[in-house]
Amino acid sequence: MEPALWAGDWIVVAEVGRGPRVGEIVLLRDPREPERLMLKRVAAVADGACTVLGDRPEESTDSRAFGPVPLGNVLGRALFRYAPIGRIGWLW
């Protein structure tokens, strides 16, 4: 998900009380391995599922590999990065 997110970033994720929208970064359960949490960007939402893609398609395993993810797997939206200090800011 670079450059939007870097390994080791500390971020706030929250349920936003509505479905995910295109362009947002969401926290979701990997449909292949539900205990694994992932952060991906929403590329499309349709029929109770969303297509998610990494920001670096050549290195990302995303909906191209595991298909659209049911909306029930989406746990929340990434809102804010609070560390590292130099990169504090909203994630939209």
């Binding site: 870097w6 952060l39 995303d62």
Partner: peptide, 15 residues
């Protein structure tokens, strides 16, 4: 206190 309690993966395997 501020350290996150949950880790999520934003990058995946490099195929």
């Amino acid at each position: 206190l501020l350290k996150p309690t949950v880790t999520a993966s934003a990058h995946c395997d490099l195929p």
